[in-house]
């Protein structure tokens, strides 16, 4: 590893600040996110789209229909960029909390509440001795009274966005969103913008490699290949 022996001492443990106030392990976790397959989210007027792009690494891969965007209860979907196994744990945490909310209160968990619960969990791992932070950033898309899109980063910080991207090429996707986002996007417009964002983030977008989910007042709905093609995704 590069750097002075001083710096090495500060990146040994998550719980140790460097003298200039940084948590190196958390920053390294963000690096892991930046290397992950990209995930984008776009909030429309009545809907929010989550789309992920992860092509198969080999034609021998047998689980051709790998879940990249995960449904969490009727009204929320989650996708993560970074370590897939870390994401999987967080998705299950969100699912359990969503159902526990229904048992406890008889209501659906608000999207912001679910995001905060997951973020609190991530935060614990920036402060717990002997543990490492999660190497994943999540986009949480949901619909309470209105559509919502929240990003959770490895530090446990949350932020709401109209359109957002995490993972490889995220800054290119965000530039596309900044140029193309307008008020009152319909579901198909939001989907098209999400596909544009993915196209900017990766060299070649194929329909088969995109997993997209649309969240509306009616619930979560996986987007089929025909609709993805209509939204401008290239043929596979």
């Amino acid at each position: 590893m590069q750097g002075s022996s001083d710096q090495q001492a500060y990146d040994r443990g998550t719980t140790i600040f460097s003298p200039d106030g940084r948590l190196y392990q958390v920053e390294y976790a963000r690096e892991a996110v930046g290397q992950g397959a990209p995930v984008v989210g776009v909030r429309g007027e009545d809907s929010v789209v989550l789309a992920a792009h992860a092509p198969e690494r080999s034609p021998l891969a047998a689980d051709g229909d790998t879940e990249k965007v995960s449904a969490v209860d009727d009204h929320v979907a989650v996708a993560g960029a970074g370590h897939a196994a870390d994401t999987r744990q967080l998705v299950d945490l969100a699912r359990r909390r969503a159902q526990r909310e229904r048992v406890r209160y008889g209501e659906r968990a608000p999207v912001d509440e679910l995001a905060t619960v997951v973020a609190d969990h991530l935060q614990e791992y920036t402060q717990t001795g002997g543990a490492r932070p999660y190497g994943t950033a999540l986009l949480v898309a949901g619909h309470d009274d209105d559509p919502g899109l929240v990003e959770i980063d490895p530090s446990g910080a949350t932020r709401s966005w109209r359109a957002d991207a995490v993972g490889r090429g995220a800054s290119d996707a965000v530039e596309t969103f900044e140029a193309g986002y307008g008020p009152a996007l319909g579901a198909d417009d939001a989907l098209a913008l999400a596909v544009d964002g993915l196209s900017a983030a990766v060299d070649e977008v194929t329909v088969g490699a995109i997993d997209a989910t649309l969240v509306t007042a009616d619930g979560t709905q996986r987007v089929g290949e025909d609709r993805l093609r209509a939204a401008g995704a290239g043929a596979s």
């Binding site: 969490v72 209860d73 009727d74 159902q99 048992v103």
Partner: peptide
């Protein structure tokens, strides 16, 4: 009523986890 809430949630959690 509690039995229904728990069973309904378990069923939904199972579906979300396993498809």
């Amino acid at each position: 009523q509690q039995f229904v809430r728990v069973l309904r949630s378990e069923s939904r959690l199972y579906a979300d986890r396993r498809g």
